[in-house]
Amino acid sequence: MSSLGGAPWYILEFGDELVYFTPYTTTLLILALVFTVLALVSRPERQVEALFGTDAIYAKDTTVDQMRFRRFMAIACGCASMGAVVTGDLFNFTLFVALVGITNVGIVAAVKNRHVQNAAFQYGLVALTATVPLFAGAGIVAATTGTLSIVALASGTVPQAPFFARALLCLGVVGEGMAPFYAAKAEMFRAPGAPYVIMCSLSSLLIFLRVAEVVMVI
């Protein structure tokens, strides 16, 4: 059990699925919680665009409707990341990661801008494709070890998960957390509403950190 990134402080039991709080997962949970609360209370930025070579300056309008929708998506994204970092079941983890992927699409897709929507669509396609390696990885782990519980897998009483299944899980998380690739992408940040776009990057960072722990212990 010590290989779980520290001894669990507390294990919450939901039938077959355990939710465990080790020092590692709790740290990630607190990080997700802080940023979700920030997304909840902060006011969105208002972008001002200056036209080069002239004196023209115009503010981009953000409708209340769109702002509320994106805030809802950002909070859902925060909750999904919280679930993904603490869950102790492999299939449940893949579902939470898929939820992070779809909420990320939602945060970006609400913006009424052709470039942004193109980017959101392509990102959505990748997120949808990424469910294939995720579910395949979980299915192979269940077939070769007979369990999906990360706690049972870490205890060493069942065979180790094959390398292929771990590679699939990593690949799936890379696909769902595609947002880092967009850090270099101007289109994404042309979208107004700063705290919500940050949530995309943060959630993918959190699921990357979590999957690193998962593939090391199973």
Binding site: F14, G15, V19, Q66, A76, T87, N92, F96, G106, A109
Partner: peptide, 26 residues
């Protein structure tokens, strides 16, 4: 026994429909 899966699954469906109906009504 695996109820938590089924909580996440309708949530994914819920979020996807929220996106679709938000875009549809705008």
């Amino acid at each position: 026994t695996r109820g938590l899966d089924t909580v996440v699954e309708p949530t994914i469906l819920f979020i996807a429909f929220a996106i679709a109906s938000f875009l549809f009504r705008r």
